[in-house]
Protein backbone atom coordinates (compact mmCIF):
# COMPACT_ATOMS: atom_id res chain seq x y z
CA UNK A 1 0.00 0.00 0.00
CA UNK A 2 1.26 3.47 -0.87
CA UNK A 3 2.02 5.86 2.04
CA UNK A 4 -1.21 7.50 3.12
CA UNK A 5 -2.27 10.21 5.55
CA UNK A 6 -5.91 9.58 6.38
CA UNK A 7 -7.75 12.36 8.14
CA UNK A 8 -11.14 13.42 9.39
CA UNK A 9 -12.89 16.46 7.94
CA UNK A 10 -10.70 19.55 7.98
CA UNK A 11 -13.40 22.03 8.97
CA UNK A 12 -13.52 23.90 11.22
CA UNK A 13 -10.02 23.04 12.55
CA UNK A 14 -7.56 21.57 10.04
CA UNK A 15 -4.97 19.07 11.31
CA UNK A 16 -3.23 18.22 8.03
CA UNK A 17 0.04 19.99 8.61
CA UNK A 18 1.24 17.90 11.56
CA UNK A 19 0.77 14.54 9.84
CA UNK A 20 2.51 15.88 6.71
CA UNK A 21 5.49 16.88 8.86
CA UNK A 22 5.52 13.50 10.60
CA UNK A 23 5.35 11.70 7.26
CA UNK A 24 8.49 13.55 6.15
CA UNK A 25 6.80 15.32 3.28
CA UNK A 26 9.64 17.46 1.98
CA UNK A 27 8.62 18.31 -1.57
CA UNK A 28 5.90 20.59 -2.88
CA UNK A 29 2.33 19.46 -2.48
CA UNK A 30 -0.13 18.89 -5.30
CA UNK A 31 -3.70 19.88 -4.45
CA UNK A 32 -6.89 18.39 -5.80
CA UNK A 33 -9.95 20.34 -4.72
CA UNK A 34 -12.26 19.41 -7.60
CA UNK A 35 -14.85 18.23 -5.05
CA UNK A 36 -15.36 21.88 -4.15
CA UNK A 37 -16.68 22.38 -7.69
CA UNK A 38 -17.10 26.12 -8.32
CA UNK A 39 -14.97 26.89 -5.27
CA UNK A 40 -12.09 24.77 -6.52
CA UNK A 41 -9.69 27.69 -6.76
CA UNK A 42 -10.41 28.94 -3.26
CA UNK A 43 -7.62 27.02 -1.63
CA UNK A 44 -5.84 29.91 0.11
CA UNK A 45 -6.75 28.70 3.61
CA UNK A 46 -5.54 25.19 2.81
CA UNK A 47 -2.27 26.49 1.38
CA UNK A 48 -1.77 28.71 4.38
CA UNK A 49 -2.41 25.82 6.76
CA UNK A 50 0.03 23.38 5.15
CA UNK A 51 2.77 26.02 5.01
CA UNK A 52 4.44 24.45 1.99
CA UNK A 53 4.67 25.28 -1.67
CA UNK A 54 1.71 23.78 -3.46
CA UNK A 55 0.53 23.31 -7.03
CA UNK A 56 -3.16 23.01 -7.73
CA UNK A 57 -4.54 20.61 -10.30
CA UNK A 58 -7.70 22.47 -11.35
CA UNK A 59 -9.52 19.40 -12.58
CA UNK A 60 -12.96 20.92 -12.22
CA UNK A 61 -12.04 23.92 -14.31
CA UNK A 62 -10.24 21.73 -16.82
CA UNK A 63 -13.35 19.62 -17.29
CA UNK A 64 -15.40 22.75 -17.97
CA UNK A 65 -12.78 23.72 -20.56
CA UNK A 66 -12.86 20.21 -22.02
CA UNK A 67 -16.51 20.78 -22.90
CA UNK A 68 -15.19 23.41 -25.31
CA UNK A 69 -11.85 21.89 -26.30
CA UNK A 70 -13.10 18.33 -26.82
CA UNK A 71 -16.87 18.58 -26.74
CA UNK A 72 -17.45 15.13 -28.21
CA UNK A 73 -15.34 13.46 -25.51
CA UNK A 74 -16.92 15.47 -22.72
CA UNK A 75 -20.38 14.76 -24.10
CA UNK A 76 -19.68 11.01 -24.30
CA UNK A 77 -18.37 11.08 -20.77
CA UNK A 78 -21.50 12.88 -19.59
CA UNK A 79 -23.71 10.35 -21.42
CA UNK A 80 -21.93 7.53 -19.69
CA UNK A 81 -22.39 9.24 -16.34
CA UNK A 82 -26.09 9.61 -17.09
CA UNK A 83 -26.30 5.86 -17.71
CA UNK A 84 -24.54 5.23 -14.42
CA UNK A 85 -27.02 7.52 -12.66
CA UNK A 86 -29.89 5.65 -14.30
CA UNK A 87 -28.36 2.41 -13.08
CA UNK A 88 -28.39 3.72 -9.52
CA UNK A 89 -32.03 4.79 -9.76
CA UNK A 90 -33.04 1.35 -11.00
CA UNK A 91 -30.71 -0.44 -8.62
CA UNK A 92 -32.39 1.32 -5.70
CA UNK A 93 -35.62 -0.44 -6.63
CA UNK A 94 -33.98 -3.70 -5.57
CA UNK A 95 -31.79 -2.35 -2.80
CA UNK A 96 -34.51 -0.63 -0.78
CA UNK A 97 -36.80 -3.67 -0.47
CA UNK A 98 -33.81 -5.87 0.33
CA UNK A 99 -32.86 -3.58 3.20
CA UNK A 100 -36.45 -3.22 4.33
CA UNK A 101 -36.83 -7.00 4.40
CA UNK A 102 -33.85 -7.12 6.73
CA UNK A 103 -35.33 -4.35 8.83
CA UNK A 104 -38.71 -6.14 9.10
CA UNK A 105 -36.96 -9.33 10.15
CA UNK A 106 -35.12 -7.52 12.93
CA UNK A 107 -38.50 -6.56 14.37
CA UNK A 108 -40.03 -10.03 13.87
CA UNK A 109 -40.97 -11.74 17.12
CA UNK A 110 -41.19 -15.27 15.79
CA UNK A 111 -39.02 -18.24 16.66
CA UNK A 112 -35.59 -16.68 17.20
CA UNK A 113 -33.60 -19.39 15.45
CA UNK A 114 -35.78 -19.17 12.35
CA UNK A 115 -35.65 -15.39 12.30
CA UNK A 116 -31.88 -15.40 12.73
CA UNK A 117 -31.41 -17.70 9.76
CA UNK A 118 -33.69 -15.52 7.65
CA UNK A 119 -31.74 -12.46 8.77
CA UNK A 120 -28.56 -14.06 7.49
CA UNK A 121 -30.24 -14.70 4.15
CA UNK A 122 -31.55 -11.14 4.05
CA UNK A 123 -28.06 -9.82 4.69
CA UNK A 124 -26.66 -12.02 1.93
CA UNK A 125 -29.31 -10.62 -0.40
CA UNK A 126 -28.28 -7.05 0.42
CA UNK A 127 -24.62 -7.86 -0.12
CA UNK A 128 -25.48 -9.45 -3.46
CA UNK A 129 -27.34 -6.31 -4.56
CA UNK A 130 -24.27 -4.27 -3.62
CA UNK A 131 -22.03 -6.60 -5.60
CA UNK A 132 -24.39 -6.46 -8.55
CA UNK A 133 -24.12 -2.67 -8.62
CA UNK A 134 -20.34 -2.79 -8.80
CA UNK A 135 -20.46 -5.44 -11.53
CA UNK A 136 -23.04 -3.53 -13.56
CA UNK A 137 -21.04 -0.34 -13.14
CA UNK A 138 -18.01 -2.12 -14.55
CA UNK A 139 -20.12 -3.53 -17.38
CA UNK A 140 -21.40 -0.09 -18.39
CA UNK A 141 -17.90 1.33 -18.24
CA UNK A 142 -16.70 -1.54 -20.43
CA UNK A 143 -19.43 -0.72 -22.96
CA UNK A 144 -17.85 2.72 -23.22
CA UNK A 145 -14.34 1.49 -23.84
CA UNK A 146 -13.59 4.63 -25.86
CA UNK A 147 -13.72 6.51 -22.53
CA UNK A 148 -11.30 4.25 -20.67
CA UNK A 149 -8.48 6.79 -21.20
CA UNK A 150 -10.09 10.04 -22.31
CA UNK A 151 -6.93 12.02 -21.68
CA UNK A 152 -5.25 10.21 -24.57
CA UNK A 153 -7.32 12.34 -26.92
CA UNK A 154 -4.89 14.80 -28.49
CA UNK A 155 -6.95 17.77 -27.30
CA UNK A 156 -6.74 16.65 -23.67
CA UNK A 157 -3.28 15.13 -23.55
CA UNK A 158 -1.63 18.29 -22.28
CA UNK A 159 -3.82 18.18 -19.16
CA UNK A 160 -2.73 14.66 -18.36
CA UNK A 161 0.87 15.59 -19.01
CA UNK A 162 0.48 18.47 -16.57
CA UNK A 163 -0.80 16.01 -13.99
CA UNK A 164 2.15 13.68 -14.58
CA UNK A 165 4.60 16.55 -14.36
CA UNK A 166 3.10 17.86 -11.13
CA UNK A 167 3.09 14.45 -9.48
CA UNK A 168 6.57 13.67 -10.71
CA UNK A 169 8.15 16.33 -8.57
CA UNK A 170 5.66 16.27 -5.70
CA UNK A 171 6.27 15.49 -2.07
CA UNK A 172 2.59 14.71 -1.48
CA UNK A 173 -0.75 14.61 -3.22
CA UNK A 174 -3.53 16.18 -1.16
CA UNK A 175 -7.13 15.28 -2.00
CA UNK A 176 -9.79 17.41 -0.33
CA UNK A 177 -13.44 16.57 0.22
CA UNK A 178 -16.59 17.98 -1.31
CA UNK A 179 -18.77 16.34 -3.95
CA UNK A 180 -17.52 12.78 -4.08
CA UNK A 181 -19.01 12.06 -7.50
CA UNK A 182 -17.50 15.11 -9.13
CA UNK A 183 -14.18 14.42 -7.47
CA UNK A 184 -14.00 10.82 -8.67
CA UNK A 185 -15.08 11.74 -12.16
CA UNK A 186 -12.53 14.44 -12.62
CA UNK A 187 -9.73 12.32 -11.20
CA UNK A 188 -10.52 9.57 -13.67
CA UNK A 189 -11.23 11.83 -16.63
CA UNK A 190 -7.74 13.32 -16.48
CA UNK A 191 -6.03 10.07 -15.48
CA UNK A 192 -4.73 11.26 -12.14
CA UNK A 193 -4.97 7.67 -10.88
CA UNK A 194 -2.90 6.43 -13.79
CA UNK A 195 -0.32 9.17 -13.33
CA UNK A 196 -0.08 8.42 -9.62
CA UNK A 197 0.52 4.75 -10.37
CA UNK A 198 3.91 5.81 -11.75
CA UNK A 199 4.73 7.20 -8.30
CA UNK A 200 3.88 4.34 -5.88
CA UNK A 201 6.07 6.01 -3.26
CA UNK A 202 4.12 9.29 -3.41
CA UNK A 203 2.50 10.25 -0.14
CA UNK A 204 -1.24 10.82 -0.48
CA UNK A 205 -3.15 12.73 2.17
CA UNK A 206 -6.93 12.79 1.98
CA UNK A 207 -9.99 13.69 3.99
CA UNK A 208 -13.76 13.61 3.71
CA UNK A 209 -14.79 12.85 0.12
CA UNK A 210 -11.09 12.67 -0.76
CA UNK A 211 -10.67 9.84 1.72
CA UNK A 212 -13.76 8.09 0.41
CA UNK A 213 -12.26 8.30 -3.09
CA UNK A 214 -9.17 6.38 -1.98
CA UNK A 215 -11.15 3.32 -0.89
CA UNK A 216 -12.12 0.42 -3.11
CA UNK A 217 -15.87 0.96 -2.57
CA UNK A 218 -17.48 4.35 -2.02
CA UNK A 219 -20.53 4.22 0.21
CA UNK A 220 -22.97 7.15 0.34
CA UNK A 221 -24.86 7.63 3.58
CA UNK A 222 -27.32 9.96 5.25
CA UNK A 223 -29.76 8.18 7.55
CA UNK A 224 -32.19 11.04 8.07
CA UNK A 225 -32.81 12.92 4.86
CA UNK A 226 -35.69 15.40 4.83
CA UNK A 227 -38.11 12.93 3.30
CA UNK A 228 -38.14 9.82 5.47
CA UNK A 229 -35.34 7.43 6.28
CA UNK A 230 -32.70 6.31 3.84
CA UNK A 231 -30.22 3.47 3.65
CA UNK A 232 -26.54 3.74 2.83
CA UNK A 233 -25.83 2.77 -0.74
CA UNK A 234 -22.79 1.88 -2.78
CA UNK A 235 -21.87 4.68 -5.15
CA UNK A 236 -19.27 2.74 -7.09
CA UNK A 237 -15.64 1.77 -7.02
CA UNK A 238 -13.08 4.16 -5.61
CA UNK A 239 -9.42 4.37 -6.55
CA UNK A 240 -8.60 1.26 -4.53
CA UNK A 241 -5.51 2.77 -2.88
CA UNK A 242 -7.06 2.11 0.52
CA UNK A 243 -8.70 -1.29 0.31
CA UNK A 244 -10.72 -2.80 3.11
CA UNK A 245 -12.01 0.43 4.62
CA UNK A 246 -15.38 2.11 4.22
CA UNK A 247 -14.85 5.77 5.06
CA UNK A 248 -17.71 7.53 6.86
CA UNK A 249 -16.80 11.20 7.38
CA UNK A 250 -19.11 13.18 9.68
CA UNK A 251 -20.70 9.89 10.72
CA UNK A 252 -22.06 11.34 13.94
CA UNK A 253 -24.09 13.86 12.01
CA UNK A 254 -25.06 11.61 9.12
CA UNK A 255 -25.72 8.21 10.70
CA UNK A 256 -28.06 7.01 13.44
CA UNK A 257 -25.23 5.69 15.58
CA UNK A 258 -27.58 5.22 18.52
CA UNK A 259 -29.45 2.45 16.67
CA UNK A 260 -27.46 -0.76 17.06
CA UNK A 261 -29.51 -2.50 14.36
CA UNK A 262 -28.53 -0.03 11.68
CA UNK A 263 -24.93 0.20 12.89
CA UNK A 264 -24.59 -3.60 12.96
CA UNK A 265 -26.13 -3.97 9.52
CA UNK A 266 -23.77 -1.42 8.01
CA UNK A 267 -20.74 -3.14 9.53
CA UNK A 268 -21.84 -6.61 8.45
CA UNK A 269 -23.00 -5.50 5.03
CA UNK A 270 -19.50 -4.40 4.05
CA UNK A 271 -17.50 -6.94 6.06
CA UNK A 272 -14.61 -7.79 5.79
CA UNK A 273 -14.08 -4.10 5.01
CA UNK A 274 -14.04 -2.03 8.18
CA UNK A 275 -16.54 0.82 8.52
CA UNK A 276 -14.82 3.79 10.15
CA UNK A 277 -16.45 7.04 11.18
CA UNK A 278 -14.22 10.13 11.15
CA UNK A 279 -14.84 13.51 12.70
CA UNK A 280 -12.87 16.72 12.63
CA UNK A 281 -9.47 16.04 14.26
CA UNK A 282 -9.14 12.35 13.37
CA UNK A 283 -5.89 10.92 12.01
CA UNK A 284 -5.96 7.22 11.16
CA UNK A 285 -2.94 4.98 10.98
CA UNK A 286 -2.66 1.24 10.54
CA UNK A 287 -0.84 -0.48 13.40
CA UNK A 288 -0.54 -4.26 13.57
CA UNK A 289 -3.35 -4.59 11.02
CA UNK A 290 -5.65 -2.42 13.16
CA UNK A 291 -6.83 1.10 12.48
CA UNK A 292 -5.79 3.47 15.22
CA UNK A 293 -6.65 7.12 15.68
CA UNK A 294 -3.58 9.14 16.61
CA UNK A 295 -5.43 12.42 16.22
CA UNK A 296 -7.83 14.06 18.66
CA UNK A 297 -9.40 11.48 20.94
CA UNK A 298 -12.89 10.21 20.19
CA UNK A 299 -12.85 11.55 16.65
CA UNK A 300 -12.61 8.16 14.95
CA UNK A 301 -14.56 5.00 15.62
CA UNK A 302 -15.30 1.67 14.09
CA UNK A 303 -18.79 0.28 13.56
CA UNK A 304 -19.07 -3.21 14.94
CA UNK A 305 -21.21 -6.06 13.62
CA UNK A 306 -22.80 -6.27 17.05
CA UNK A 307 -24.15 -2.75 16.61
CA UNK A 308 -21.61 -1.15 18.92
CA UNK A 309 -19.58 1.94 18.03
CA UNK A 310 -16.02 1.35 19.19
CA UNK A 311 -13.58 4.21 19.58
CA UNK A 312 -10.28 3.82 17.74
CA UNK A 313 -7.44 4.74 19.99
Amino acid sequence: MRPLVLLGPQRPDPNLRGPLDEAGCDGPCVLITAGWRGDEAEDAALRSHIGRPATALPLYRWFEAASVDAPDVAASWTRRQERLRALKRVHRLRLTPALEAWSELVRAEDDRAIVDRELERALRAVRQVDTDLLEETAAIEAEHSELARPWEDARLRSRHEAVCEALDGAGALLIAGGHVGVLMNRIRFFGVDVAAAARPDLLVAAWSAGLMALTDRIVLFYDDPPEGAAWPEVFGPGLGWLPGLVALPHARRRLRLSEPGRVGLLARRFHPAVCVGLENGAHLVLKDDRWVNVGVTETAFQLDGSGAVRGLS
Partner: peptide, 18 residues
Protein backbone atom coordinates in the same frame (compact mmCIF):
# COMPACT_ATOMS: atom_id res chain seq x y z
CA UNK B 1 -39.27 24.68 7.24
CA UNK B 2 -37.02 21.72 6.62
CA UNK B 3 -39.53 20.02 4.35
CA UNK B 4 -40.24 23.25 2.49
CA UNK B 5 -36.71 24.55 2.07
CA UNK B 6 -35.24 21.19 1.08
CA UNK B 7 -37.98 20.71 -1.50
CA UNK B 8 -37.58 24.11 -3.12
CA UNK B 9 -33.84 24.64 -2.70
CA UNK B 10 -32.36 21.14 -2.35
CA UNK B 11 -28.70 20.70 -1.56
CA UNK B 12 -26.48 17.76 -2.52
CA UNK B 13 -26.68 16.12 0.89
CA UNK B 14 -26.20 12.63 -0.48
CA UNK B 15 -23.05 13.47 -2.42
CA UNK B 16 -21.14 16.12 -0.47
CA UNK B 17 -18.72 15.15 2.29
CA UNK B 18 -16.61 18.13 3.22
Amino acid sequence: LRAGLTHLFPGHLWMIYD
